[in-house]
Design a protein around this nucleic acid. Structure first.
Lengths: 214, 214
DNA sequence: GATATTAACGGACCGCAGTCCGCTTGTCAA
DNA sequence: TTGACAAGCGGACTGCGGTCCGTTAATATC
């Protein structure tokens, strides 16, 4: 069975539906992204407010919010490039590993490790992204989250097909449970309050996944 | 080996250190708790703001914040009674189950299920509690979280001693990983966006725990 | 090039969490 | 009873995320 691993790519950098942005609007989008990137790098995502980004970019707050509905969406756009790179790297890895006949369980362990490091590298942006939409019912979940979930689910399904995991397993939930400790808020908790190290987490993940295989 | 399961009980309902509260202060604390409880019940935790609680209680905002440093702390106090009840119930359960010689793994599954339902019943309060302190480095973690973690860890340790789990396992991390999907924010995500049911989650948890046992 | 249309723009504005500080009052010792 | 003082008190204030709406200007059509 083929896994559904098309690069989703529908983060909303250019809105891509309706007619294209006016030139000034497109310029501002770029300007905002560059400004935000610079300010975030200098003083941390948490400590830079939207008004400041607008001011520093020399535009009004209304303009900023016309481009990006909220801080999370801005952060999502900022993450976009790196995340697409990550997706493509993983896709390439899967290709190699498939040819090398690496078992799905091993692939899953590898993916979770890679994901762990990626998330750790972008905790602050992701934190802002995940903060958004606690009331919004659906659309609650950021796009990266869904791709991660889908990928893990796909690997689990492969493992079932490969006989490594019982066909009775609830793959949908297991994927969610494996992903939960990688939520940026939880990860941060684990790293700071609990004092876990990245290697420790990677090892722990691995042992959990191995537990799934019989 | 005995598990460390003293009822922590040090939620800060009366502050319990330093001299006792002045009478007016204690009255206000009660008044605030009752008012908040009523408003939250009527319109939801998220939709009631601190100013409204103060106004409805007929006190100033400063007074409110003198009693409770932030909304999360207020919610924690509101949760206190129920949570202590929960703790005691679980402690009693463990007693029974120990006498019935139920294996630690089974006890853990039972505990996680009970915890799932408890958290589900109090998602809104917990959500507010967990929102707090993303920058605070330590003290980040709410007291309930620690007790839950400690309890799970204790049960895992018993399972190791009982030969159900490999002694090489990283119990500290595993406890964290099992608890992660029960974080109120993640649980809410799972219930709404993913559409998981409580029974599904309980079953999924159980299968993960069984996977840990060899 | 003139004109209409439609999106972009900017900044005043709102609501909420949390802080500050000058005023008031309970409590305890004399 | 009184007086001193720590604790309690209230509400104006700040900062931030996000919205609104009157004004401006880019494009499309003639």
């Amino acid at each position: 069975m083929k896994r559904d691993m098309i690069n989703l790519n529908l983060i909303q950098n250019p809105p891509s539906q309706g007619r294209p942005e006016r030139r000034d609007a497109a310029e501002n989008r770029q300007l905002i992204l560059e400004t935000a990137d610079r300010l975030f790098a200098a003083r941390g995502v948490q400590d830079v407010c939207m008004a400041e980004i607008a001011k520093e970019a020399g535009i009004g707050k209304g303009t900023l919010y016309r481009r990006f509905a909220n801080k999370g969406e801005l952060c999502l756009s900022l993450l976009d490039e790196d995340y697409q790179l990550f997706q493509n790297q993983q896709l390439a890895r899967f290709q190699e590993q498939m040819q090398a006949q690496l078992s799905p369980i091993e692939q899953l362990i590898g993916f979770l490790t890679q994901l762990l490091y990626f998330i750790n590298d972008h905790v602050d942006l992701l934190n802002e992204i995940e903060q958004v939409g606690l009331d919004d019912a659906s659309a609650n979940v950021s796009i990266p989250h869904w791709w991660n979930h889908l990928t893990i689910r796909g690997l689990l399904q492969s493992a079932v097909n490969h006989g490594e995991i019982s066909p009775d397993a609830d793959l949908e939930y297991i994927a969610g449970a494996l992903l939960a400790p990688l939520d940026s808020r939880i990860l941060r908790l684990h790293l700071t309050a609990h004092g876990f190290t990245l290697d420790q987490i990677a090892a722990g993940q691995e042992s959990l996944v191995r537990g799934l295989a019989r």
